[in-house]
């Protein structure tokens, strides 16, 4: 039997979530009544073992193992729970914050390593794109036409009277400067290192 020791339930995890920049103002985390409405509208819950209500319960129970639990990566970020919660809690935001906590460690970084190219493209063009890690998969699932479309994109855009998608040089430099100072560039470097290590071991 588990003993709930005095001083053990400190709400530290809940507090760190509530005070995170990603959390909505007045996030109702502490007010959760475990009614399960979040779960009843959750697409991940209807197709996997994921249960948003249980996520909140574990956060309130100070269950730190949640951060390294794969279950948090099942959320769709569709905000359905967020939009119906009767106490203005948001499991969607909680998951976002938990995943950020997870990314502080190598295991978490591995989860997002394949999305690295989005960041690279952003720095290069000022516009994100579908990470090329997945591109072959996409063509396989969608069809060759999709590849054709990508090749002819500029022509099609011209036909539609639309200009280039790439930002002017000066502005790209500004964005690079900004993202360097916000720490984003370093963040990418860190992810790249983990990704490389993983590829090397493979």
């Amino acid at each position: 039997m588990k003993t709930l020791k005095i001083g053990e339930n400190t709400f530290e995890l809940a507090d760190s979530i509530i005070n995170d920049l990603k959390a909505s103002e007045n996030l109702g985390l502490l007010k959760c009544i475990q009614c399960g409405m979040c779960t009843s509208v959750c697409p991940a819950a209807s197709h996997t073992d994921y249960d948003p209500r249980v996520i909140v319960k574990r956060v309130l129970d100070e269950d730190d193992s949640l951060i390294s639990d794969d279950i948090i990566w099942n959320c769709f970020y569709c905000y359905s729970c967020h939009s119906v919660c009767p106490v203005n809690n948001s499991v969607c935001e909680i998951n976002q914050i938990l995943r950020q906590k997870s990314i502080e460690k190598v295991d978490g970084i591995r989860k997002i390593a394949s999305f690295l190219a989005y960041g690279d493209s952003f720095l290069e063009l000022g516009i994100g794109s579908i990470p090329n890690d997945f591109f072959n998969e996409l063509i396989k699932d969608i069809g060759e036409e999709y590849f054709e479309l990508k090749i002819h994109l500029d022509d099609i855009r011209e036909e539609l009277g639309l200009g280039t998608i790439i930002l002017p040089e000066n502005d790209l430099n500004d964005i690079k400067k900004i993202l360097k100072k916000t720490g984003f560039t370093d963040r990418l470097t860190k992810i790249r290192r983990v990704k490389k290590d993983e590829e090397d071991t493979r």
Partner: peptide, 8 residues
């Protein structure tokens, strides 16, 4: 994708 942080 959890790649971009809120601050950036």
């Amino acid at each position: 994708y959890d790649l971009f942080d809120q601050f950036s």
